[in-house]
């Protein structure tokens, strides 16, 4: 199964990779999504966002699928066709 998603980058990620958003195809898993995005953005994106040793998104990265942080999603995460993925580096304010 191949799904097409829109990845949106914010803050330092947007500046570093020079794009606001990009279309990425994947097999519905987070790992495939980030690996495929890295093929477009460069290998360092993978290490910046994903912890290969632990096999999951880095603890301080905020990754949302349609506005829901993946840490708040219950069960197996399955990315669907047309999903919007927002990726933020660590940030705060108030």
């Amino acid at each position: 199964m191949v799904v097409s998603t829109k990845i949106m980058l914010f803050a330092t990620l947007r500046k570093k990779y020079g794009v606001r958003d990009l279309t990425v195809k994947c097999d519905g898993t987070i790992r495939s999504l980030i690996e495929n995005a890295s093929r477009i953005l460069g290998a360092r994106f993978l290490d910046e966002v994903y912890d290969r040793k632990l096999g999951k998104v880095r603890e301080d990265i905020i990754l949302m699928i349609n506005g829901r942080n993946i840490k708040d999603l219950k069960g197996k995460i399955e990315i669907k066709d047309g999903d919007v993925i927002s990726v933020f580096p660590p940030l705060a304010g108030g």
Binding site: F10, A11, I62, S86, F88, L91, A92, G93, G94
Partner: peptide, 9 residues
């Protein structure tokens, strides 16, 4: 970025 970085998130 200061605090304004929160707008998008």
């Amino acid at each position: 970025y200061g605090t304004a970085i929160l707008i998008n998130v």
